[in-house]
């Protein structure tokens, strides 16, 4: 399938990525090459097969819904780029 520049920019926007002009040219070429190769999948003789989601048997794993204390709050927060009063700080979103 042929990928257009508009499509690439739309996809990048969905993925929360900005692309500069050189990246756009580069990724358009790469994406086209890779999708051309991936066409083998589109044409694979698999119409009658079921899909596989995981490597092993798909089954739900349940546990009790219990609150557990995490003992390293300081360790969690030390990685935040911006903090205030032990809370993650972001720019104002509601005017």
């Amino acid at each position: 399938m042929k990928v257009s520049k508009e499509e690439l920019l739309h996809i990048a926007d969905l993925a929360d990525l900005n692309l500069d002009d050189s990246e756009i040219d580069n990724y358009l070429d790469n994406l086209q090459d890779i999708l051309d190769f991936a066409d083998i999948v589109c044409n694979a003789p698999v119409e009658d097969l079921d899909i596989t989601i995981g490597a092993n048997e798909a089954k739900n794993v349940f546990r009790k819904d219990e609150v557990k204390e995490f003992d390293n709050i300081e360790g969690l927060l030390q990685n935040a780029p911006s903090l205030e009063l032990n809370m993650f700080k972001i720019p104002k979103v509601v005017q």
Binding site: V41, A44, V46, E47, L49, T52
Partner: peptide
């Protein structure tokens, strides 16, 4: 993404079964 999910992703999952 919509429009390509069936052609690529779903097919790839079937290839996984194969």
């Amino acid at each position: 993404s919509a429009g390509y999910y069936d052609a690529y992703y779903k097919k790839a999952q079937k290839v996984r079964t194969m």
